[in-house]
Write a protein that binds this DNA or RNA. Sequence first.
RNA 1: GGAAGCGUGCCGGAGCGGCCGAACGGAACAGUCUUGAAAACUGUCGUAGUUAAUAGCUACCGUGGGUUCAAAUCCCACCGCUUCCUCCA
Length: 422
Amino acid sequence: MIDLNLLRENPDAIKASQRARGNDESIVDEAVKADATWRKALQEYESLRAEQNAAAKQVGAASKEDRPALIQAGQLLAERVKAALEIANAAEVHLNDVIWKIENVVVDGVPTGGEENFVVLKEVGTKPTFDFEPRDHVALGELLDIIDIERGVKVSGSRFYFLKGWGARLELALMNMALDLAAKNDFTALVTPTLVRPEVMAGTGFLGAHSDEIYYLPADELYLTGTSEVALAGYHRDEIIDLSKGPLRYAGWSTCYRREAGSAGRDTRGILRVHQFNKLEMFSYINPADAEQEHLKLLELEEQMLQACELAYRVIDTAAGDLGSSAARKYDSEAWVPSQQTYRELTSSSNCTTFQARRLNVRFRDENGKTQTAATLNGTLATTRWLVAILETHQQADGSVRIPAALRPYLGGQEFIPVVKA
RNA sequence: GGAAGCGUGCCGGAGCGGCCGAACGGAACAGUCUUGAAAACUGUCGUAGUUAAUAGCUACCGUGGGUUCAAAUCCCACCGCUUCCUCCA
């Protein structure tokens, strides 16, 4: 949710953001109008209510004889109050309807345009070259007997899989390495719930246009989360958190569930795009003044992970039109996937400024003791998808896969994943 | 799943339908005293909306409805917690 004060003081800034995103600008004018209407209605109601409160007090103090007349007057007043309240409530509902449609105001410097208008900030590492015909991760998974897609489909349907043997261990090793890195950098580990209430899901901004991406359990009114970001953002909902000793940082591990409703036919091969995977997510609660700096820190840690996995990658600054509704800026890092001869997203880090926290009512006390809405940021430190890039990048001619040195301590020192099928 | 009880401010804990945004205690903060500290004493001590306003007004006593001139206080529903029983790990 955007800041109402910004709407009142500088609606043009919001319009500019809407333009950059390719969103409707006129909704800002509508919001300004709705806000004014609501405030007027609210004042109307409040002054009537004040009158009523005073009148009710008189009844209490009045003598037996005077009471009937006062009560009768009060009855009339009560009706007017009720009517005024209804008007004010309706105005507030309308205001919220409009205001919730406005997406977060983008940070200065975010490239304008749509999905293809991203700016490449850097390219790191050398893309692997092979003096043999490289296999894709599906072939490698079969050869090494570490990814069983066939049985995943048998048990759960398309876009499901089993990780097996070294595959399962590799994923856990990756998660553990990421967790260690996070812990070293002041992130508290959290294993989070993956079923959340509607308010939390809505608060994080996932129930907007893309709500059909989300699994929902109507019998229990719970949503399955597509990322632990949801639980991590809800963690401090309705709290005044203490940021006086610095930001609150969490590293949330969870399984993630995505319906992939809009991507039928896309990435159908392998485990690049699946309904269920695991992820370690960084999440920071911070003073908004420090949010951009924190964003760079998250990116830096993501890069450390990519480098530890010895992957070639690039970092992009996502264009405004491709940002999620909560994000004011988003950096993605994409690793080179040899079988596709292209970069694929492995991490995504968003600065949500105060947008998410305002919806979830997460505040802190500033230097003056005043409560202020906190800023929230999130970033990926590891996901199951990383296995795709790792396996394909480090494959050998015989199909075995070299394990990056940084991961070996988490795998009992193992250096290669051996071929088990001829 | 069945039964009973309970949900009040940072915590504990009062609260006859009007005088309750809420007693009292603790914690915290500030000050007095003290060489310093403790103790004692004094004071401050919720959040939000509206407003030019740290004035006023409004709202909030689990949540949502209702009754009433007036609700923390009565009624209904829901949610949560505790205990007992049952069940299952």
